[in-house]
Design a protein around this nucleic acid. Structure first.
Ligand SMILES: [Mn+2]
Ligand SMILES: [Mn+2]
Ligand SMILES: [Mn+2]
Ligand SMILES: [Mn+2]
Lengths: 217, 217
DNA sequence: AATAATTTTTAGTTTTGTCTAAATTTATTT
DNA sequence: AAATAAATTTAGACAAAACTAAAAATTATT
């Protein structure tokens, strides 16, 4: 598999998690920052290699082979992120782009040794699960903070968006994985929230709340 | 710089260390396992980018810019090799091919952090010097075992060839960096050597001796 | 100095992955 | 059920990096 094929497979995998039907051309093009026509070309090649099932105009779905390949790329991405944060002291907002490169290093042995070196972590720095060598991963029940009712106490478990700007926003407000938050107000007009954290009240927008995964505690 | 450009620059650098004149097309083609015509194409591109000086039929030399770029690739290659051996328990014969991939990961910050994490090693697992972030590296006086006179005692400091088959040969005969060796016979006919190591006599060919760097002790 | 051998460059293809523009199919409105 | 809009595919082009085969330049040999 080439660098580019791996990126497509990974994007199709991520899109599949949200909508389990056929993944359409434009959605892939949007994620990969290319054009629909380029996606059509690549999708044909992936179908040739039996990594996806594809019928014209009907979108694609991963085959078993494609699904496994995707999980192995995600495994590499997330293990490298853990390495960068745990061993090289990178911050959680710095690691994604580096992992985008490192995930393409082709060696099962390397990634399995790295896994071991890191102590077989179950989650990456953004709270996302790390597939094991067979593709198995834990499934933690989480919901978006924006969907939790008033007066509930929650713990922060992950982020939906792991862009530097969002992560830096969280850092600025001292919100990290494990933080405990109580929702004390929901503004009907814009769905912004007032939350209580470490005895301090913070106002956060609905967009922020819609990118934070939490569980009620 | 693309993956391929980096490989060319690195090869030109390695050839420059042996012969400091213009590096010729065929030599590059041989190292990179491509054809002379491909080399000509690439060399023109590198000249465009001012990484090499190039005149038709006269070979290439690295510019200052090209030399620095080459050293940074070598730095990455060797630091990743140290990482694989020291932290992930790879053997010295396994790491070269992996480092060939890892050396292309583009991040100064990553490689400087890795350097620090490894304790700023001065040499890689094959005894080759690791350039620091400015391109500086130690120069250890070494010579090939094949060039050392009879009855001399030497210490093994590095390998010229780091192919798995040669390294595995050394492992089999328990020769590693730091091993102390005494030359007790040189066969005039084929220049093979009888050496004394840990009280044991071993016969090694001239080809083996011509790939082992040592210093007289 | 002329010829032969070797090396290097040029010219023309190929493959991979991308693009734009046009054509086609599917979905949505009237 | 048409008509319109949106999504998708096709056709044709391009850049990067490789190749083969032929031409040109350099080097070695008679
Ligand atoms: Mn990431
Ligand atoms: Mn992540
Ligand atoms: Mn190496
Ligand atoms: Mn090495």
């Amino acid at each position: 598999m080439t660098y580019s094929e791996e990126n497509y497979i990974k994007v199709i995998y991520h899109l599949s998690l949200v909508s389990p039907k056929g993944i359409n051309t434009n959605a892939i093009a949007g994620m990969i920052e290319s054009k629909a026509s380029s996606v059509t070309d690549m999708v044909k090649k992936l179908a040739e290699k039996e990594l996806v099932d594809y019928q014209k105009y009907q979108g694609v779905t991963l085959t078993q082979k494609g699904l496994h390949a995707a999980k192995m790329i995600v495994r590499k991405h997330r293990l490298w992120e853990v390495f960068l944060v745990e061993k090289l002291d990178f911050t959680w907002d710095e690691v994604h782009d580096l992992a985008e490169e490192l995930e393409h290093i082709k060696s099962e042995k390397l990634i399995n040794r790295l896994d071991e070196f890191l102590g077989f972590p179950k989650e990456d720095p953004h709270g996302d699960p790390i597939p094991d060598r067979y593709g198995q991963m834990i499934k933690v029940e989480k919901q978006l903070l924006s969907e939790v009712g008033l007066n509930k106490k929650v713990m922060c478990l992950g982020v939906k968006d792991s862009s530097p700007s969002f992560l830096q926003y969280l850092d600025k407000h001292q919100i990290s994985l494990g933080s405990e938050i109580e929702i004390i107000n929901k503004e009907a007009f814009d769905m912004s929230l007032t939350i209580l954290m470490n005895g301090k009240e913070i106002l956060i927008s609905n967009k922020i709340a819609g990118n934070l995964f939490v569980k009620v505690i």
